[in-house]
Design a protein around this nucleic acid. Structure first.
Lengths: 136, 136
DNA sequence: CTTGATGCAAAGCCTTTGCATCCCA
DNA sequence: TGGGATGCAAAGGCTTTGCATCAAG
């Protein structure tokens, strides 16, 4: 059982069509610790399958996001980045000096926001928290 | 002493040049409860001063943001919105049904994020939290 | 086969910028 | 009067889309 098959199953189970392009993109995104943007993914995908187009990367990210397989990270003054939907809930911190994107582990933030939303009469659907910070 | 003068002083005290366009834009932004985007501001400004250009609105928002007078709100799939730098710290909630942007009062979120950053060895510079939610 | 997926290139949207002119300090 | 601010229009960066073709189911 190759890893490739796992990614195909992931797509299939989400009710999505399995194409070589989608399989390539999902495998790249699954196997990186980065939070790549579309250009990153496009360039890496090209080295594995030179038929992939940027349009397909964009369309695939959109499809994957709607299917709940991928999370889109919207940052200021930079193209969106993506990560596979995290198993362990986390938020993000941008190191202002290096530009690095660091994951903030834990559900502490989520549960606070959940409570805050509830207190305002809302049910939280999702949240987006980005901290900009510098190393001490 | 008119309000107009207050806005001019606000600019002057920030070390910025006082121009009719900036004064108009600051007054509009100060007197609204909305969180207008550039287009909103441009259209409103036009009704008061038909010399204002979109480019100036963009440049003014950038200048005001750098001066710490204005906060930029970056949202998904929508142009950035702006608000005068809040006196009372707050975050934002997007009502997914109405599209309305609601302010979340209090510093509870900020202090949690502050602590979280510190625990990771960082000093928080700013944070950006947007909750997407539905009315219960 | 039929319908959705893809590649390509063009278009779209928001934002920035070059340049000549203007005007605040 | 000098340097920053403005208007205009063009360009830029990221993303979406129309259309013909392709291929998954």
């Amino acid at each position: 059982m190759t890893q490739s098959i796992d990614y195909k199953q992931l797509l299939r189970e989400a009710g999505l069509r399995v194409t070589p392009q989608r399989t390539t993109i999902v495998s790249l995104l699954s196997e990186t610790d980065d939070h790549p943007n579309v250009e990153d993914l496009y360039e890496k995908a090209r080295t594995l399958d030179d038929t992939v187009s940027v349009a397909t990367v964009y369309r695939t990210m959109s499809v994957l996001e709607n299917a709940g397989l991928v999370r889109k990270l919207v940052l200021e003054d930079a193209p969106a980045r993506y990560e596979m939907m995290p198993q362990t809930d986390h938020d993000h911190l941008v190191d202002m000096d290096s530009g690095e994107l660091v994951e903030i582990p834990g559900t502490e933030i989520a549960s606070l926001l959940d409570r805050v939303a509830a207190e305002m009469g809302y049910e939280l659907v999702s949240h987006h928290t980005v901290i900009r910070a510098r190393k001490v």
